[in-house]
Design a protein around this nucleic acid. Structure first.
Lengths: 259, 259
DNA sequence: CGTGCCAGGTGCCTT
DNA sequence: AAGGCACTTGGCACG
């Protein structure tokens, strides 16, 4: 059961103690404060003072969220070190989140703190995501008949010069079949990708006929046109129907990786 | 100055009133609760019960953050509508965040609420990001001599069949110069991109010599090799040095776009 | 570690 | 709506 401690309107000196203490005990910290943010690393940015939510997670992840917009305005994943100090000159609390690889710093200056929440959260719930392109690929590799004809899987993620062929099969006539899978609507770039793979294969093995199939739940008109022009094929798949195969290949909990 | 109201351990029925009221007045809402999350839309996912932070912003953005990891486990940008109801069957508070384009739903079931914070935050601080690829491109377009020779800018973002050429110049001998800019280390894909553009140009204008230059602060070994093989060039730029040109083209605050 | 590629990518612009 | 592409993209797998 979660332990939550709320500090309303602490002074900057109090806040420094609270945050340092919470950090040392690996708590989650949520701060509502007027602050400015500077970032320097792969890029650099400056955010003028304003009222925001600062999140520091138990693994050191740092996020600064403005009152609007779903993405954080500044952030730092897996901070190796968070330094908290009081700058008596500017009269601000300075929190610096450092990361070593890549070398980046997020520095927050807080001049007015409305709320600090220190929380110990218990969260071991598994997260299941259905269904990735990889899963579709694995299902089709083991069950190529889903594509509506007798096919034999030769290779998965076959390396060719321009990249990787999702599925490399042979049909019952012995033709090579190259499959490009899209989990969502296939667009022209998917068709171009498929064409590139086929061209690459053709340059190495001239004689045989090579078929190319786009496998996706739907396809855009432009992609359809290019498909026709290039004499390639489209096979519609039903993601819902494929879902029942999930687990027969493998189903994993992402949380295992989050430790 | 921010208005912050804290509700500690409200009942589910109380929470329903608090959240509905806060939503109607477009407040920022932060909830610490034991909850499960289901997402259905472009993909679908299920997150088992656990203790998390739920953020609802004044523009309807919704985020669910676990105690670790810098990215939200589930989210909904610009929710068109958030429905809050009490399910007496399961004894949970249900919050459904709907989005119409694309059609997606995030449904949160809360069975134990530790804290609700309602906040009205004032944040009009401008956000400045330095320095984007676009800025580098604009600086080089107006000051092509930075590349170390006499060049004339003919076009910016010139459309060719495979995409857009960052900079299209001519050198003092009248040769066409195609420039591909990378803000960070240039990789092989950058060289391939450049080669594609040149090939496309060559197919339209056979006679002239076309030079290709990768412009970046650094380049990977593999990219360097391909560059040599393709007889293309690399021009190193110093991002720090370019920074002083920022503002001479244009400097904009991202906040203008956030409304 | 670099290279390649998917992601509920997001965000921005242009057609 | 769709294409094209940058992004502090993040994330995983593989050599």
């Amino acid at each position: 059961m979660a332990k939550v401690i709320v500090y309303e309107e602490p002074s900057l000196e109090e806040a420094k103690k609270i945050v340092k203490n919470a950090l040392s005990r690996k708590k989650n910290i949520y701060i509502l404060a007027n602050c400015s943010v500077d970032y320097f690393g792969r890029s650099s940015s400056h955010l003028e003072f304003g009222e925001r939510l600062i999140i520091i997670k138990s693994d050191g992840a740092l996020l600064i969220h403005r009152p609007v917009g779903h993405s954080p305005v500044n952030w730092q994943p897996e901070t190796s070190y968070i330094d908290v100090s009081y700058d008596s000159e500017e009269e601000v609390l300075v929190m610096k989140a450092l990361r070593t690889r890549p070398r980046e710093v997020v520095a927050i200056k807080l001049d007015n703190i409305f709320l600090i929440v220190e929380a110990e959260l218990y969260d071991s719930g598994a997260f299941y995501m259905h269904i990735s392109e990889k899963e579709i690929r694995d299902i089709l590799a083991t069950n190529p008949e889903i594509l509506g004809e007798k096919l034999t899987t030769i290779d998965v993620e076959k390396k060719v010069e321009p990249g990787f062929i999702d599925l490399y099969l042979k049909d019952k006539k012995g033709n090579v079949v190259v499959v490009e899978i899209k989990r969502l609507t296939a667009r022209v770039d998917a068709v171009r990708q498929l064409k590139k793979y086929i061209n690459s294969l053709k340059s190495h093995m001239r004689t045989e006929k090579i078929r190319g199939i786009i496998v996706a739940p739907s396809i855009t008109k432009k992609a359809q046109e290019l498909l026709l022009k290039e004499k390639l094929e489209f096979k519609q798949i039903n993601i819902e129907a494929l879902s029942k195969y999930v687990g027969k290949t493998e189903k994993r909990s992402l949380f295992d990786y989050l430790k």
